[in-house]
């Protein structure tokens, strides 16, 4: 506890290409709590098409307005991800990270039906080694995810499309579990475990 001197998740850099080349199955993107949260939200956006207003509404419903005053404050929080293009703030408070965790899990619960639907299709197709793109719900999701990732993240060129597909599917399955009771706690644990490299 005292090992974290203040309640700010310090700025960390993710030197993507080098780690990425060494072990293509490991997701360095998830080793930053800030990037992980941003990506989980991005996966939700890609699947459901929710706008930042919907995110803000959910935050409001959870009584977290103080962290999500407007779209700008949401953007700023997400912009703290070291993967993001452009300049933004570098720090994210623990409280902000918790607030984002709660919002993501609440949204995941809200859209659990759609997440289930996508995973059901994924389970149908995967064993048959068929292209996931033949199922509209998966095709849309994969495309949107790819598009959003390339729009927002720097060094996206360094990430192969097949890797990005795997990352997006992992995030999709993760979202299902975050929609469970105690999902927020699971996500919170996962954030820290990833960041500690466990």
């Amino acid at each position: 506890m005292s090992s974290r001197p203040n309640s700010v998740i310090q700025s960390e850099s993710v030197s993507l290409p080098s780690i990425f080349m060494d072990s293509p199955d490991i997701a360095p993107q998830l080793q930053s709590i800030k990037a992980h949260l941003d990506l989980a939200l991005l996966a939700l956006e890609a699947l459901t098409g929710i706008s930042s207003d919907a995110v803000l509404k959910t935050a409001q419903r959870l009584g977290l307005e103080e962290f999500f005053g407007d779209r700008l404050s949401l953007w700023r929080m997400r912009q703290s991800s070291p993967l993001r293009k452009g300049k933004g703030r570098k720090n994210l408070d623990i409280e902000e990270a918790q607030a984002l965790t709660l919002v993501i899990c609440s949204l995941a619960r809200q859209y659990q039906g759609k997440i289930r639907q996508a995973i059901a299709k994924l389970e149908q197709l995967s064993p048959q080694k068929q292209s996931l793109h033949q199922e509209p719900i998966l095709a849309d999701y994969l495309e949107h995810f790819h598009q959003l990732y390339c729009e927002r993240m720097m060094q996206w060129e360094a990430v192969s499309p097949s890797y990005l597909e795997k990352l997006s599917l992992k995030l999709l399955v993760d979202l299902l579990f975050y929609s469970a009771p105690n999902g927020d706690r699971r996500l919170w644990i996962a954030l820290w475990d990833h960041s500690l490299g466990r």
Binding site: I26, V173, R186, R198
Partner: peptide, 27 residues
């Protein structure tokens, strides 16, 4: 959930419990 691996998507999950028991489950 804590795994960083994004390699093969697991579609069959084998849960071992008790001494000899196993459950094979979809996601």
């Amino acid at each position: 959930l804590q795994s960083d691996r994004v390699g093969e998507l697991v579609s069959r999950h084998q849960i071992s419990y008790g001494r000899w028991r196993k459950l094979e489950l979809t996601t």
